[in-house]
Simulated assay, not measured.
Amino acid sequence: MEIKGQVETVHVKNTGRCGELLIPGTRVFLERSSNPVRKTAYDLICVNKKVYPQSACSLQRYCSLCCQ
């Protein structure tokens, strides 16, 4: 992912649909980890795709952010 002009590797819990969801320009929601020794600083939480009736959320609490 590109975050503020920097390319970052992020943790993706479920990689099953990455090929169809993670394309350039797609809006994603990330959560920064508070663990400084983690391999990745961010978790991919949600991918917002307008072509789908609902976004691909990994946590329901984020649906109000990305599924609108």
Rank of each mutant, 00 (worst) to 15 (best):
L65E: 14
T15L: 13
K49T: 04
C66K: 01
A56G: 00
L21T: 03
C57G: 05
L44V: 01
E8M: 06
Y42G: 03
C66P: 00
V12P: 01
L30S: 04
Y52K: 06
Q54M: 05
T9P: 08
C18N: 15
K39E: 15
L21D: 11
H11T: 12
V12A: 11
R27T: 13
L44Y: 03
E2K: 10
G19I: 13
S33K: 03
R17F: 14
Q60N: 14
M1A: 08
S64K: 14
C63H: 07
E2Y: 06
L65W: 12
R38H: 08
C63Y: 04
Y62W: 13
L22M: 07
V47F: 02
I45G: 00
K49M: 03
C46Q: 03
G16S: 15
L44G: 00
E8Q: 09
V37H: 07
A56L: 04
Q60E: 15
V47M: 00
M1F: 12
Q68L: 06
V28I: 12
Y52P: 00
R17D: 14
V47H: 00
F29W: 09
S34K: 05
K49W: 02
S33V: 01
S33W: 00
I3W: 09
T15H: 13
C18P: 07
G19Q: 13
V7Q: 15
C66V: 13
S33C: 07
C67V: 10
L65P: 03
R38N: 09
P53V: 06
S33P: 02
T26F: 01
L22K: 03
S33A: 02
K13H: 10
N35V: 05
Y52V: 01
H11K: 12
T26H: 07
P24V: 00
V7M: 14
K49L: 06
V7G: 05
N35K: 08
K39Q: 11
C63Q: 13
Y62A: 09
C57T: 03
H11Q: 10
Q68T: 09
Y62P: 00
T15S: 15
L59E: 10
T9K: 15
R32K: 14
V10M: 11
Q68C: 04
R38M: 08
C63F: 05
G25C: 01
V51N: 08
L59H: 10
G19C: 10
L44E: 04
E20A: 15
A56M: 04
R27I: 13
I3R: 14
A41L: 03
C57L: 08
V51T: 11
N48M: 09
C63I: 09
C63D: 08
E8D: 05
C66Q: 02
N48I: 05
I23F: 03
E20R: 14
S34Y: 00
G19A: 14
